[in-house]
Amino acid sequence: MYVVTGCGLGCGTSLMLLMSIQDIGKKYGIEIEGEAVDLGSYKGKKCDFIAASSEIAKQIDAGDIPVVGIPNIIDKAEIERQIKPFLVKE
């Protein structure tokens, strides 16, 4: 799978979130590749879903690509709950 995580600058919370999502993927035997981007750079990225902190997710309009907003990005259990519907074994 390919996941894009977004934050205001693309170097802090989005990276933390991407690392957590990759860990969760491992738990389910799913290899997740991805990249952390800033708010100006997610457009046109091909990915299975976009994840971001809820305050950032509100500002993302990605058309057909699902956007997952996560209020507490260090709570792995919460991240897992939110992204589980979008995890697909290839």
Partner: peptide, 20 residues
């Protein structure tokens, strides 16, 4: 960054991670 991007740096209850 806080002014432009809002309070998203509050990544979890009670915890802020400002950066630029």
């Amino acid at each position: 960054s806080f002014h432009e991007l809002g309070p998203y740096s509050v990544i979890a209850p009670g915890i802020a991670l400002p950066h630029a």
